[in-house]
Amino acid sequence: MVTCVNDAMFPGTGAAVVRLLRRLGVDVDFPEAQTCCAQPMVNTGYLDEAVPVVRTFVDAFEGYDAIVTPSGSCAGSVRHQHRLVAQRSGDAGLERAVAATSPRTYELTEFLVDVLGVTDVGAYFPHRVTYHPTCHSLRMLGVGDRPRRLLEDVRGLRLVDLPHAEECCGFGGTFAVKNADTSIAMGSDKARHVRETGAEVLVAGDNSCLMHIGGLLSRGRAGVRVMHLAEILASTEGDAR
């Protein structure tokens, strides 16, 4: 599952996942029937509107061994919200289908560490990097130290601690526009902490959070790049980055 945001805005992240997984010997497919996990509808309160989107999800991913996504938030939505949407639909068939797809859905670092059993993915990235654990990977999925273990095994990478790392960046989906002032206040504090680390690159497992923090860093001319974790893990010595 590449996710709707990555599909439209950050295709490079999806491509990095494909490259990384193939390098690790995984047979990767992108079922073109996929669209979105339905989280934007669910989190805004539009449960009826989420029903056809969840139906599309389960149809698109039926029959795969594992559904891997470079987003803690979307993986969290599939694992925790699809059941509620299916219940709302009153369609027992959809409930059964959701029960089959949800547990097979993994956030990228979970899939790498738990299913493939690797932390050294053969990556090379000679930069000073700080990591922001996004709320949904941290608290909804509980990915724990998996991203950190993967980053620590990247050759050349110097990982620096982000102060107040576990505090939300203020993105929050439609919160970012419905409560734009509060969202920006939270994001500005996050951006300040990122700058304090002196890192060249801010990495996270969710592009939507990175779009928010990155948008503030870029407006503030902070000189810090944001990158999805998948893109760092896909990097090798052959890359001219």
Binding site: A8, F10, P11, A15, F30, E32, A180, I184, R219
Partner: peptide, 18 residues
């Protein structure tokens, strides 16, 4: 969104097109 945040540059093609 853009009152205080830049939007990322739009990519030349979507993942699905790629």
């Amino acid at each position: 969104w853009t009152s205080a945040r830049d939007l990322p540059k739009a990519p030349p093609e979507s993942f699905r097109a790629w």
